[in-house]
Design a protein around this nucleic acid. Sequence first.
DNA 1: TAGAATCATTCGAACTGTGAATGATTCTGA
DNA 2: TCAGAATCATTCACAGTTCGAATGATTCTA
Lengths: 148, 148
Amino acid sequence: MSDVKGAADLRATVVFNLGTLGALAADRFAARVEALGLKPKHAGLLAALDAGQAASQQELARRLGVAPSLIVALADQLQGLGALERVRDPEDRRRQVLGLTAEGRRLLSACVAAAQAADEELTSGLGDTQRAALARGLRLLGEQHRPA
Amino acid sequence: MSDVKGAADLRATVVFNLGTLGALAADRFAARVEALGLKPKHAGLLAALDAGQAASQQELARRLGVAPSLIVALADQLQGLGALERVRDPEDRRRQVLGLTAEGRRLLSACVAAAQAADEELTSGLGDTQRAALARGLRLLGEQHRPA
DNA sequence: TAGAATCATTCGAACTGTGAATGATTCTGA
DNA sequence: TCAGAATCATTCACAGTTCGAATGATTCTA
């Protein structure tokens, strides 16, 4: 292969396709959760709350890779929807411990359904085998890049 | 499987992993092309110019999925770097036809190298077989979602 | 040939997310 | 015990990015 690289070489790259398709997938997902009155980051926060133990906002900011001040805004909005509750940690009253409500779990479930529908739409052109291989590869790569 | 869906179901989704990893990949790539004085969109424009026939800015905006006014700004900056030239289309003097210069091809080549290095970094935890499968799946999916 | 359409360009505005400042609370070490 | 440092949630001003409307030049259409 030549040492002068062109557009074709770029398209063969994982990061290029990940970036492009990631933006596309994010748009499709965003369009669907918008019907729930949510942004993708809201869904991310709901999922983080469902996944781990009760966590402070500081800790959630680390997990989601965003500034703590953004968690405040997201939590405000989700609290306004009745999706989560803030409770002062009695053992450290600086901390606000966030917890999902029943409505929060309902919303999260709807977000997951939206993601699955978007999956169906996005990968409809792929055969079952290819779709499974892609899903597996992404899950693997994702597991290796989880924040501690 | 239950009909009430939780965080684990979301993480199993292609769109979720595509979105998350897409953002990660974009960041890694951006950090590398920044050393060249470029943003990822600049690289995208260079690649679009290298790939197709000479195109108007209007057409490039369609291909990249951005507003025409953004193409103006990107092209201004790349022209300032000597990476491309604007030529009035003699057959339609409203159009500016953009073309890569030798410097533009050099920059594109450096962008590709940056993407390949980012690939190496990002997928270093995967086996060769898995990496190839992932690259193939992404390329396939990407080809199906090309703008006309 | 007059008016509609299309192109590149400029400019103001919307949206997102960040980082610095603030007040409350907890920790630390003398 | 207590004074100062550290950590938490919160507010707020700000930067970065992208878009859409307005503009002028050019081309198309009837």
